[in-house]
């Protein structure tokens, strides 16, 4: 197992994923990117990029347009060669062990790159054959991936005639044909209708349960927040955050927020809350019995605050830490403007 290397950025190091999470003895880190730089002519696409993805995790890769997401993905999947720094996939260097890396990955680009004149079966049969699967294995594998992506009813349909959502499923089936350990998905949900998007997310959840590591680049932050165990936020070629998703959503450098609801109206409840030492500000959510409490320091733990609130002897209905939405985290970490 590889130890995390200092990135030079304490914030990133502090936020690095816990190597023990999701890892079994003998496991290598699924993706290990260290000091990665890449430029196109005069444009520095990636600058000292460092992050790790744990095996059997679902890792989101988020950033504005032109942040360098696709470049990083192409470097991981061996389509581009790193100019400096290193990229390892399950402990194998993408430059030295290209073929071995390719056997372990499945990359789905952000555009529909398909042989549209083929039928679904022909398309999958072609890739299965190209990966060297025997005919008998091909039958089993194609049947399995078609069932997983719920495309077995359209096996003989020409790809040209399929809807965008169905084509995306065929693309996913193709990625799974060589049974890769790591799936690299670049904007898999872009252009899909809500139903197709939800169904795609369900397939991804099923794949994670099957033990696949999934590295997904997406703009649909709400779904990523629900889906991903960890996330890397990249902006203008630099990593702004990498680590567990929950940590990002909890993270606020100056204050912590809690949401509490009381069972019945209380007189001067806001004032009483404000009177607590730990509380910095209180906001009532419209005319409801729900209050948002901001604590002045992160040192205040949930238990201390809860005990203080209970001491006020009010009928408490619910008490929970108020998480930031991923959109807010994203906006906080990334800069304005399009590259």
């Amino acid at each position: 197992m590889n130890d995390p290397t200092p990135t030079g950025n304490p914030a990133i190091e502090a936020m690095s994923p816990d190597p023990s999470s999701g890892m079994l003895p003998g496991d290598a880190v699924a993706i290990d990117v260290r000091d990665l730089n890449h430029s196109f002519k005069n444009h520095q696409a990636l600058h000292q990029v460092n992050f790790q993805v744990m095996p059997r995790s679902l890792h989101g890769f988020v950033g504005p347009n032109g942040a360098g997401k696709t470049t990083a993905l192409k470097l991981i999947c061996t389509l581009l060669q790193p100019q400096s720094g290193s990229v390892q996939v399950f402990g194998k260097d993408v430059l030295k062990d290209t073929k071995a890396v390719r056997q372990q990955i499945g990359f789905m680009p952000d555009h529909f790159s398909m042989y549209r004149q083929m039928t679904v079966t022909e398309y999958l049969d072609f890739f299965a054959a190209a990966y060297g699967l025997a005919v008998a294995d091909r039958r089993t594998v194609i049947g399995d991936v078609l069932a997983l992506t719920d495309m077995d009813g359209r096996a003989d349909s020409p790809i040209n005639g399929l809807s965008r959502g169905m084509q995306q499923r065929v693309g996913l089936a193709r990625v799974l044909i060589n049974d890769p350990d790591l799936l690299l998905l670049d904007e898999p949900a872009s252009g899909l209708d809500p139903r197709a998007r939800i169904e795609l997310m369900e397939i991804l959840r099923a794949l994670r349960q099957m033990g696949k590591t999934i590295f997904i680049s997406s703009h649909i932050l709400s779904e990523l927040a629900e889906l991903c165990d960890s996330v890397t936020i990249i902006d203008r070629g630099r990593v702004k955050y990498t680590g567990r998703m929950r940590r990002l959503l909890e993270q606020n450098t100056e204050s912590s927020m809690y949401r509490l609801t009381i069972a019945e109206p209380q007189e001067r409840f806001e004032e009483r809350l404000l009177g607590l030492d730990e509380v910095d500000s209180v906001t009532r959510v419209e005319e409801t019995l729900e209050y948002r409490v901001t604590c002045s320091s992160q040192i205040t733990s949930a238990n201390v605050l809860l005990a203080a609130v209970l001491n006020l002897e009010v009928p408490l209905e619910s008490f929970q830490k108020d998480l930031r939405h991923l959109n807010e985290a994203f906006m906080d970490l990334t800069e304005q403007g399009v590259r």
Binding site: T119, V120, T121, E122, D125, F126, A128, A129, A130, G132, L133, A134, V135, R138, R139, I142, A155, D156
Partner: peptide, 10 residues
């Protein structure tokens, strides 16, 4: 048409 195994291997 569409029978699996038609493609040449490797």
């Amino acid at each position: 048409r569409g029978a699996i195994g038609g493609c040449w291997p490797g």
